[in-house]
Amino acid sequence: MNADLDKQLNVFETKINEDINIEPRDWMPDDYRKHLIRQISQHAHSEVIGMQPEGNWISRAPSLRSKKILLAKIQDEGGHGLYLYSAAETLGISRDEMLHQLHEGKAKYSSIFNYPTLTWADIGAIGWLVDGAAIVNQVSLQKTSYGPYARAMVRICKEESFHQRQGYEIMTKMMQGTKDQQAMAQDAMNRWWWPSLMMFGPHDSDSPNTGNAMKWKIKRQSNDILRQKFIDKTVQQAHLIGLSIPDNKLKWNEDKKSYDHGEINWDEFIRVINGDGPCNKQRMKHHIKAHQEGEWVRKAAIAYQLKRKELINQ
């Protein structure tokens, strides 16, 4: 190996070992850069695609207060998308390229958003369960080794915990409400519980990709550990408001001081990731359509800016 490269790798690894953040101008191995681009762009796309299932209920939010909260939440998510696109851009990829990869199917987004929001309770379930699961993952990522990503996570986590509380509040109100509302809330719980557990990815024993990510401290805790944290905090919240968990194997394990749970349906997980979830096609079609319909607007903005510059230069 070339001595220069050797030295650079050494500096990089020392920083990783000593928990010093890697910054955009630092040398980094190609695979580290690639891994981060893939992960951060996927994260950004998830924030943005997630605006669709939630946006689906803005017009029908059942009170002015809940409409305001939902509008603000979706804006937060779009804002998260923006920070994350910027963080990925520090690695040498443009937002246009990332969008292109998304539209080509080369970049993914969180599979959870391939499920539909069928009733108002789904808005509660997303905030409480989906944002709740995202927080567990993102809190852990606040300590990720790439500086811009870690800092984006710190900003994002503050807002996510609001979302989680607001989602839980929707569920609580519905569980204190009429029979119809209670049934709606339980139904949403039944549909969102398992997909939320799948958000953490395959069992540690089945995830071959995490080796380098753990070594480079991009990922700080394993899928199963994060999933367990989520289950342990969420089960109690569910019981507190009278919701049951759709898992008859769920049981408190006194020895490990946490819950045992039933087997996750990994066939469904793989099927949805590979494109056959209920809304995969709808989500992509929607995003591509908006992007294409907006092209003339983006072109006009650029043309206008150029004209202004020419005027100033004259």
Binding site: V48, M51, Q52, G55, I58, S59, K67, K68, L71, A72, I74, Q75, G78, G79, G81, L82, Y85, H286, H287, A290, H291, E293, G294, E295, V297, R298
Partner: peptide, 22 residues
């Protein structure tokens, strides 16, 4: 304006329009 959510020409504009809706 809320109907523009996820439909705007760029993400920044999506946020602006839903912010006005709010």
């Amino acid at each position: 304006l809320g109907e523009w959510c996820s439909n705007a020409p760029i993400l920044e504009e999506d946020l602006a329009l839903t912010n006005f809706a709010l």
